[in-house]
Amino acid sequence: MSITSVADPHLRAHTESRPTVEVTALLNEQHYGDATYMTKRQLFATWPACAEDRQTAKHLWKPPGEDGESLAVGVLGRARAFVASLEERAPSVVAVTHHTAILALRSVLEYRPVTELVVESLFLKAGFEVCSAG
Rank of each mutant, 00 (worst) to 15 (best):
M1W: 04
S2G: 07
I3S: 06
I3H: 10
T4K: 08
T4Y: 06
V6E: 09
H10K: 13
L11H: 05
L11A: 13
T15F: 15
P19A: 14
V21G: 00
T24Y: 02
T24C: 07
A25Y: 01
L26H: 05
L27V: 15
L27C: 11
N28M: 08
N28K: 09
E29K: 06
Q30F: 01
Q30N: 10
Q30M: 14
H31L: 10
D34A: 15
M38P: 04
K40Y: 15
R41M: 05
L43W: 12
F44K: 03
F44E: 04
F44Y: 15
F44L: 06
A45R: 10
A45P: 02
P48N: 08
A49D: 15
A51F: 01
A51V: 00
D53F: 06
R54E: 11
T56I: 03
K58Q: 09
K58L: 12
K58W: 12
K62Y: 00
E66S: 12
D67L: 11
D67N: 11
D67T: 06
D67V: 00
E69Y: 02
E69V: 11
S70L: 02
L71H: 01
V73T: 13
V73G: 02
V75Q: 04
V75F: 02
G77W: 04
R78Y: 00
R78L: 01
F82S: 00
A84L: 01
S85D: 11
L86W: 04
E87M: 09
R89S: 12
A90Q: 07
P91K: 09
S92K: 12
S92E: 14
V93C: 08
A95Q: 11
V96W: 05
T97A: 09
H99C: 10
T100M: 09
T100R: 12
I102C: 12
A104D: 06
A104M: 08
R106H: 06
R106P: 00
V108S: 05
R112L: 12
V114F: 02
T115F: 07
T115H: 12
T115Y: 06
E116L: 10
V118A: 06
V119Y: 07
S121F: 05
K125P: 00
A126S: 15
A126V: 03
G127H: 02
V130M: 03
C131S: 09
A133R: 14
